[in-house]
């Protein structure tokens, strides 16, 4: 490489360097950790082998947990996007001032950490000071039970947590969409519902797919909301990983992480295969 080629190659070299430092090196370090066996007392490595992975696949327990987590996060992604697309379309249609107010509100809700969000919802769903208490006081429901921990509570809060992110991600793409696409379909005699499904959704396919991937990735590793608002049977896979980390069985926790990572990569590959390609009409 001569001096003239260097400025052109520099960004690529930086990118390679970045990948090595941020991705490959930690991944290699984690993989090394996952195949090691440590002394529980001293924490020193005793040997290397695939023991941890063998333990993961000793029975179907962890595989089922991974499948449950992937399924749950997929459902959360679908519900989030089903709400985010029409809501973002409605916000995009607003005048500048109203739209800016909504964007500020969405960004403000993003400023809350997962822990604070979970805690706030615990209060909101508790019988002593939250919605069930008020409804019970008004005589609309009977009983004195909090609505958490429960699967619905965990699910709703995870959707609540993902929704502003999805909307913020979708808003620029929806604003860029040619408004005449919709009007031209109206002049062709299509109803609003038909326009939504036949024009808007396919036209926003790329941004929706990207938002779905990001929402999925954001939730797959989440454990705070799951642990705080779900019952132990509802917990996601990241809770198990965190538990093994807390009990100093780091190699096994890392092995579990690797299994989850592989499952996620497989899911993404399948999703890309199904939704990532441009649609070809076959009339």
């Amino acid at each position: 490489m001569n001096k003239q080629q260097l400025p052109i190659a520099a960004p690529h070299l930086l990118l390679v360097l970045y990948c090595i430092i941020v991705s490959f090196a930690p991944l290699l370090f984690l993989f090394t950790t996952s195949v090691s066996t440590t002394d529980p007392l001293t924490g020193q490595v005793i040997s290397y082998g695939l023991n941890n992975f063998q333990e993961v696949f000793y029975d179907t327990y962890y595989a089922v947990q991974i499948a449950y987590t992937v399924g749950l996060v997929s459902a959360i992604t679908v519900v989030t996007l089903s709400m985010a697309v029409p809501l973002t379309l409605a916000i995009a249609k607003l005048k500048n001032v109203a739209r800016s107010a909504w964007v500020v509100m969405l960004l403000a809700s993003l400023a809350l950490s997962e822990v604070l969000t979970a805690f706030a919802w615990q209060l909101l769903l508790s019988h002593s000071s939250g919605i069930p208490g008020w409804l019970s006081y008004l005589g609309i429901i009977s009983g004195d039970k909090s609505w958490w921990p429960s699967f619905p509570a965990m699910f709703v809060v995870m959707v609540y947590f993902s929704l502003p992110i999805a909307m913020i991600l979708l808003l620029p793409a929806i604003r860029r969409l040619d408004p005449f696409l919709i009007e031209s379909a109206y002049t062709m005699g299509f109803s609003k519902i038909a326009v939504f499904f036949l024009i808007l959704i396919p036209s926003l396919r790329g941004p929706i797919f990207q938002t779905a991937i990001l929402t999925f990735l954001l939730n797959i590793g989440g454990f705070v909301i799951s642990q705080q608002l779900g019952k132990p049977s509802d917990w996601m896979f990241a809770v198990f990983i965190a538990d093994f980390m807390r009990t100093f069985n780091v190699p096994f926790a890392v092995a579990l992480s690797f299994c989850l990572l592989i499952a996620v990569l497989l899911c993404l590959a399948v999703a890309n295969l199904i939704f990532g390609r441009k649609p070809v009409e076959t009339r």
Binding site: D178, F180, E183, S184, S203, R205, P279
Partner: peptide, 8 residues
Amino acid sequence: TLALFPHL
């Protein structure tokens, strides 16, 4: 803007 449907 012509408003041609980009996905078709």
